[in-house]
Design a protein around this nucleic acid. Structure first.
Lengths: 113, 113
DNA sequence: TATCATTATATTTTAAAAAATATAACGCTC
DNA sequence: GAGCGTTATATTTTTTAAAATATAATGATA
């Protein structure tokens, strides 16, 4: 009898030992960027608006400059914009993800216990 | 104003998309190996015996051969032994951890947003 | 055979997390 | 200025996870 396993992994950004950015938060940022709305992004990811808003508040205060600028009232009731800084962070994280993917591929060979 | 971040990460072994072995489980195995007792290992890690036992049961059924052989009754009330397979898995995981550590070090330079 | 500390398991209780609900503020549009 | 859909926030309810508790089974040892 033989069993094979795969190695998987995750990376994230920390500040003072606290998680600030990871897989899920990047996806949230991307969906806000595409929809222009925190609420729509949250709906797409099946999370509550509160949860999404808490995350954004946390990120906005932990990066040197905000990653999302929300605006309430006005056309469509309001909107949310991902900043240049936010877009850079998304891009940087994707590059790291790519590197991790390669790392996992290289080390995933022939593991059977 | 400048902020610096560190990249951190975790790796684990999966079987059919399900987590089978990670950081915490390896530590549990090591403590069982050193103490010869599931209960003592659980106490050391401040987890309930049930939690530890569930983990061991899960691992024993997901690897090709058991990683822990528990024995109840007898001298001292019972004991638990980490198998050769279990020890190999611990060793292999440590090697992977080392590689990840290097990966993180290499990619952790100059990230500031 | 009584004792012991452990393994093994079920059940109950507690705590934490998540979800749901409610409400206000906002500012463009009509 | 009424309506709209969003942001923003607090509160309540529900769900889930963890912890605690209880109890049996075990077998060497004395």
């Amino acid at each position: 009898m033989e069993s094979t396993f795969t190695i998987n992994g995750r990376i994230w950004l920390e500040k003072d030992g606290e998680k600030v950015l990871g897989h899920g938060r990047v996806e949230l940022l991307e969906r806000i960027h595409n929809s222009g709305s925190i609420r729509q992004a949250a709906l797409q990811m099946k999370m509550s608006y509160k949860q999404a808003w808490d995350i954004i508040k946390h990120m906005n205060t932990h990066f040197s400059s905000p990653v999302v600028i929300p605006q309430r009232g006005g056309k469509g009731g309001g909107s949310a914009l991902v900043t240049e800084n936010g877009l850079n962070i998304i891009s940087e994280f994707h590059q790291l993800q790519e590197k991790l993917k390669k790392f996992l591929e290289v080390n995933s060979v022939n593991i059977a216990y």
